[in-house]
Simulated scan of single mutants.
Amino acid sequence: MIYDASIRQRHTMDRAGAQIFRLEPRVRGEPHELNEELPTEKSAARMRDLTNLYGTKSAKTRSRKWDLMRTNEGDADAKNIIEGMVEDFEINKESLETTIAHVGNIPPHDVTATSPENAYPLDKIILKGEWSHLLDILELTQSGDAASAVDFCQKNNYPSFVCNRLDKLWQIQDEGEKSKIAGIFSYIGYLLMFKNLPYNIQNSKPTFNNAYAKHQGIPVTLFQKFDKLFGNSDPEAVRMLDEKCDLLIGYILVLTLFADGFKTLITDIASDLKMTPMSLRRYYQILGCKLSSAKRAVTVTLPVPLKLPELRMKNKKRR
């Protein structure tokens, strides 16, 4: 199809009285009257031809996608077809939940839970067989006072989140609760240790013989779990995938909630993660947490039932 260089200019008036100009091509050899209205399918075909000739690369790509989405029925308008496909699309609930957990980087959770403790089941985060590897901080409570334990942890680069809460262990009378909180502190420390390792060590698949010497004291059982959860299956990768790193952060933040009775401050764990409190807010929000500010301190709580972020379509245009 050949187009004249001449272009007809036609205008109408909108309700506000402003002029709207529309440029239309004149096709050589075809009659063209001023008030002529093209059929929908013919107008769409001409628009595609113009796009293919003069459109940008992105416009041409978008046009090709629209053509592929059209049905074999020539009478249907392309826009109606696309909108109908979106409206008729049925969401697989199981797949959606999996996708939300993946996209939001959310640890194991239960949206039907009626208490914060059950919203993120601790036994799904720290497995039963892992508690025997989480005795280092508990042993400190049995061998000295709080001041000496804090001094030891600070000298050995324990997370500030843990150091700032060690004295809490001496206030807990129930031995089972004390063991649980101490184990959570240890687990947070190991997760942070794994996150800060050089990636070539993270992804090196340790053995039982070299784990303690080569991987800075992370028990091999935990290291293998961390590698499975947060590692990269690509042996040539040079860094942890963003979504895996976010998931690791999610595990750490959930454990901070348990450690502080589901009302925690954001400052010290942000320092341990080498993040600003402002940037860390989003991660807590993804977990369904509520944040409130008072006297420059951000407090995090976990309301139930758990409300996770909704999955949104990318590049969805607003109407």
Rank of each mutant, 00 (worst) to 15 (best):
D227I: 05
L166S: 11
G55L: 09
E37G: 09
Q173W: 08
P31I: 08
K65L: 15
R10H: 01
G29K: 01
R70K: 14
P159K: 11
H133D: 05
S115D: 07
D268P: 00
W131Q: 01
G183P: 08
P219W: 10
R28L: 08
N80M: 13
C153W: 02
D227Y: 15
S204A: 15
D75Y: 08
G217C: 08
R318S: 09
T61Y: 05
G17Y: 14
L273G: 00
G217K: 02
N210M: 11
V300E: 03
L247V: 05
G176T: 07
Y158E: 03
N105L: 02
Q285N: 10
R281T: 06
N209L: 14
R70D: 13
A211L: 15
M47P: 00
R48W: 05
L255W: 04
F194N: 04
E236A: 13
V162T: 14
A16N: 14
L127F: 10
P219G: 03
L247M: 08
D151H: 04
H215K: 07
T221Y: 11
H11F: 00
S179D: 07
L169D: 10
T299G: 00
I20E: 03
I201R: 13
K57E: 11
L169P: 11
R48L: 13
A211H: 13
Y283P: 02
R48N: 03
L192D: 05
Y251A: 14
D75Q: 05
K244N: 10
Q224I: 08
L140D: 06
M193L: 15
K155Q: 12
R296Q: 09
K128T: 07
H215M: 04
P25D: 01
P121M: 06
I7M: 10
V86Q: 12
Q19E: 10
G129L: 05
K42Y: 05
I2N: 07
T61G: 04
L191Y: 04
I201M: 06
P108S: 12
L50T: 02
Q154W: 10
Q216A: 11
L135P: 00
P107N: 14
V238W: 07
A78Y: 09
A16H: 14
L280F: 00
D14S: 06
D4V: 04
G129D: 05
R296H: 11
A45S: 13
A44F: 14
K57A: 04
P277M: 09
S233M: 10
K314I: 01
I266N: 00
K42L: 12
A237M: 14
F226C: 03
T56N: 05
K79A: 09
M275H: 02
E37A: 12
Q224V: 06
D260S: 08
E94I: 12
T267A: 12
L197V: 01
E87D: 15
D268F: 14
K79I: 11
T264C: 13
D272W: 00
L34V: 15
G250L: 04
V27L: 08
K228W: 03
M13E: 03
L68N: 12
L302Q: 10
M240P: 01
Y190N: 12
G231Y: 15
R281M: 10
